[in-house]
Amino acid sequence: MTLQQFLQQDHRACDDLFAVAEQAASGGDLALAKDGFERFRQAVLRHFAAEEGMLFPAFEDATGMRMGPTQVMRMEHEQMRAMMNAAAAALAGGDREGFLGQVDSLLITMQQHNMKEENVLYPMCDQHLAAAPALLERLQAALREG
């Protein structure tokens, strides 16, 4: 399995959790939405942490590109963390419309972010980090928790 295949799979898994939470809120079940959104958020945060802690540094070491794509990805992670907090806060306050609005923009931001990673960054990682097979196993171990 390549880094791209594995990380793309994890994106899809996060998408599924997202869809469950959004669907619950759309249907008016805020308790289920809260539970679902929390699970989604934890999964995304684990994904971000694994990338920022293992994948990006390995990429930067291998290519010497420190201010390039990984920097943009880190900034977008930061934006999405803030958006997830805002969505969770809306849900905690019982604001269904506010939550649905926040996750609508979150979804687009997340999808365009994933697209960049899957089409550009991950293929570059597979190209430059082929000599680091332990990396894939470490990522798999980190994302299998929870």
């Binding site: 930061e78 934006q79 803030a82 958006m83 907090n85 649905l100 609005g101 926040q102 923009s105």
Partner: peptide, 16 residues
């Protein structure tokens, strides 16, 4: 709006 707002301060949701 997002590009104009401070980090950690997401702009109002799209449906607003």
């Amino acid at each position: 709006l997002q590009n104009r707002s401070a980090i950690g301060q997401p702009p109002p949701a799209m449906n607003r």
